[in-house]
Simulated assay, not measured.
Amino acid sequence: MHNPADSSVPSLPDQLLSPGFAFVEGDRMKPLLTSLGALMDWPDFVDSWNHLAPDPYLAAKGRFRRRRHGTFSAPADGPVVAEPHQPHFQSLQYNTLQGDIQRWFEPIDAAIVHGDTLGTILRFCHQLFGHVAPATKRWHIEVHQFRIEASADAAGEPTPEGSHRDGVDYVLVLLVDRENIASGTTTIHTPEGRLLGDFTLTHALDAALIHDPVVYHGVTPVRPLVADLPAHRDVLVVTFKSADGGIG
């Protein structure tokens, strides 16, 4: 997972074990991905963010974002496969704004689900997280497309719940695009609130990898660089959770 000639860079599995997160710039992330598959439909993958549906659970609270959602599964030694569309659920322990409810979002477009790019990203996650957690026999996987929109009147909130955990085992946050926005800095904290690191996903394929039970993460609000032009931050979030004790 890293260049063996550069011993100063810890491997991604080592970073996920301690300190519990890693930031990977797009120039490094791209060859990691393409070693496992193609990104031939990348332009269509990026364009699909222009067709996301509003998040109805946040719109009523004045926090506007668009999203789509999909569910997958994978055995430790087999391929990642798409599951029937189902709701996203988090307990109040992990989401104080929208916990303990089943949230139904529009499904990810089938062409994206079965396309090269998402398949390659999921293979990368499966290999990496499986390496870190070799005892896991089966994974429950969720994929979220997010567009956070900002305007001169209202900042966009990538994580309106604040610094949090997702209630899973591992998380990939991959930048797809950002247009006319400032900030959006990812912050990583200990459970006690001590800052462990911060970085900003600024280029396509810049990635944050997180060991969710170990650290908390959040993203600062985004604002337009030019007030009267469209402004958005597009990310793909992939979560892996052990399903050995039952999917959920």
Rank of each mutant, 00 (worst) to 15 (best):
A38C: 03
L39N: 03
W42E: 14
P43I: 10
D44V: 00
S48T: 08
S48K: 06
N50D: 14
H51V: 00
H51A: 11
L52M: 05
A53W: 04
D55Y: 03
D55Q: 04
D55E: 07
P56W: 13
L58K: 02
L58P: 01
L58G: 02
A59P: 04
R63C: 02
F64N: 14
R67K: 09
R68D: 14
G70P: 01
G70V: 01
G70S: 15
T71H: 12
T71F: 07
S73N: 09
S73F: 12
S73P: 00
A74I: 00
P75H: 14
A76M: 08
D77L: 10
V80R: 06
V80C: 10
A82K: 09
H85L: 02
H85Y: 03
H85G: 04
Q86D: 14
P87S: 13
S91N: 05
S91C: 04
S91L: 12
S91R: 14
L92I: 09
L92H: 11
L92Y: 06
L92E: 14
Y94L: 05
Y94E: 09
L97N: 07
Q98F: 07
I101Q: 15
R103H: 06
R103S: 07
W104R: 12
I108W: 12
A111D: 15
A111M: 11
V113E: 13
V113D: 08
H114L: 12
H114F: 09
G115A: 09
L118Y: 02
L118K: 04
G119E: 04
G119D: 08
T120W: 08
T120D: 12
I121Q: 00
L122T: 07
L122K: 10
R123T: 15
C125P: 01
L128F: 05
F129T: 05
G130Y: 07
H131S: 14
H131L: 07
A133Q: 11
A133I: 00
P134M: 11
P134Y: 10
A135L: 10
R138A: 14
W139V: 09
H140Q: 15
H140I: 00
I141H: 11
V143F: 05
Q145F: 03
Q145L: 01
Q145G: 00
R147D: 10
E149D: 13
A150N: 08
A150C: 07
S151N: 08
S151V: 01
D153Y: 12
D153N: 15
A155I: 00
A155H: 02
E157A: 09
P158N: 09
T159R: 07
P160Q: 04
P160I: 01
P160R: 01
G162Q: 08
G162Y: 02
S163I: 07
R165L: 00
D166W: 02
